[in-house]
Simulated assay, not measured.
Amino acid sequence: MSLDREALGRAAARGPFLRVLVAETQGSTPREAGAAMLVGADWAEGTIGGGALEFEAMARAREILARGGPGRLERIALGPARGQCCGGAVTLAYEALAAETVAGLAPGIWARPVAGASAGEMPLGVRRALARVRDRGEAPALLIEGWLLEAVAAPARALWIWGAGHVGRALVSVLAPLPGLAISWADSGAERFPETIPAGVTPLIAANPADLVPLAPRAADHLVLTYSHALDLELCHRLLGHGFGSLGLIGSATKWARFRARLAGLGHDSAQISRIACPIGDPTLGKHPQAIAVGVASALIRGMSAGARPRQKKDRAG
C-alpha cells in the first residue's frame, strides 16, 4: 500500500491535520497494516476500521492537534472491552505532516523516525530493510525500531470517464476513493453531474465532449460510456488519433462489431482498433451500473498492482 500524495496535498490545503496509520497488526484486526485516515479539527477522511478503535483514534489525533504536540506510537489491544469482535492488537502511528513535508515527497521509500524515536543515525535494521528494497525489490515492514518506512506512490494515474449517466456515476463513486487515481469526468452540461462531486475528481464540460480529447495526457486511461452512440464513436475515433494508455467502451457485441467497421472506415487499422476493450467490466457480474463499476475497478486495481511490482530504484530517508 503506497502513501497517497494527492490526498495528503488536499488535506494540507485545508490546514493542520494528523495522519493516523496502522503501523503494525497482531492477530485479527479490522484493517491491515498500511491503512490510514487523515484527521483535522473538524473533518476526517479514510478509515482504519471503524468502531470504537477509530472513534478513539480520532479523539486522540484531535487532542494532539489541539496542543500542537508531536505525534506518537500507541499499541491498542482489541476485544469486547472496546466493542470489537476482533481479538488482536494494532499499533497506531500519529503523525502531524506539514504542508512543506507533503510537497517535498518524492517516489520511493520514505523512512523517518516516529516522534519519540531517535532522530539521529538511521538504525541498522532500517538500513538493511532499505538495502533489500534496492537490491531485491522486497517490501519493508512499516515499523522498524521506531522508524516508519512507506512507499511513496508515483504521480497519480490519469483516468478519464466520459459520461455522467448512471454508469458514469457508479464508476466515480467506486473509483474516487481509490488512491493513485486522478479522475477527469466529462459530459455536455453541468446538469448532467450530481450536486456533490467527490474530492479528487475534476468535472469537465463541453457542448461536444469530444473536443476535450486534446486535454487528456497521451498515456491516460479512458472509459467511454456517454448517452449517445454517435458521441461514443466520435470519442473512440479521436482517442485513436490522440493516443491513450487504455480505452474501454461500454456496449454489446453488436455495438462493438458496428464500431469496429466504422472505425476501420475512418482509417484506423485493426491493430489499433483492437486496443479498445468492449465490453468493460466483468460481464459475469451483470449489467447493473454498480456491478459494471465493481468489475472495472477490479481490473484497474489489478493493473495498478502489476505496474507497482518493479523494484524501487530510489530510496531516501527524510
Rank of each mutant, 00 (worst) to 15 (best):
106 A>Q: 14
210 A>L: 10
309 R>E: 14
120 G>S: 12
120 G>I: 07
31 R>V: 08
30 P>K: 01
92 L>M: 13
93 A>G: 03
167 V>P: 09
190 A>L: 11
112 R>S: 10
171 L>H: 01
87 G>Y: 06
191 E>D: 14
203 P>V: 09
274 S>Y: 08
120 G>Q: 12
179 P>F: 06
317 A>D: 11
262 R>G: 08
276 I>L: 05
38 L>F: 03
61 A>K: 01
226 T>R: 06
95 E>D: 15
48 I>C: 06
28 S>F: 12
304 M>C: 09
66 A>T: 03
76 I>D: 01
56 E>M: 15
230 A>R: 13
260 R>F: 07
115 A>P: 10
296 V>D: 04
256 W>Y: 09
39 V>Q: 05
16 P>E: 05
12 A>D: 02
108 G>A: 08
201 V>P: 14
148 L>K: 08
90 V>S: 05
55 F>N: 01
43 W>Q: 07
259 F>W: 09
186 A>C: 15
251 G>R: 04
318 G>T: 15
214 P>L: 11
185 W>F: 14
229 H>K: 01
257 A>S: 08
126 V>R: 08
68 G>E: 10
136 R>D: 10
172 V>G: 11
40 G>C: 09
95 E>T: 14
150 E>R: 13
272 Q>G: 14
134 R>T: 14
88 G>H: 01
152 V>H: 02
59 A>N: 02
219 A>C: 06
102 V>C: 03
70 P>H: 13
187 D>Q: 08
167 V>Q: 01
108 G>Q: 00
14 R>Q: 15
15 G>T: 07
84 Q>C: 09
315 D>F: 12
174 V>D: 08
66 A>K: 03
42 D>S: 05
306 A>P: 03
240 L>R: 10
244 F>P: 00
140 P>T: 12
207 A>G: 14
292 I>M: 04
24 E>K: 12
145 E>D: 15
61 A>H: 07
294 V>Q: 09
276 I>N: 05
43 W>K: 02
93 A>M: 01
249 L>P: 04
209 P>C: 08
35 A>N: 02
233 L>C: 00
103 A>D: 07
256 W>K: 06
20 V>P: 02
227 Y>Q: 11
56 E>H: 14
288 H>I: 00
180 G>Q: 09
282 D>C: 10
194 P>Q: 10
79 G>Q: 01
19 R>F: 04
125 G>I: 07
194 P>S: 13
234 E>M: 04
73 L>Q: 10
189 G>H: 14
172 V>H: 04
144 I>W: 03
257 A>T: 10
262 R>V: 06
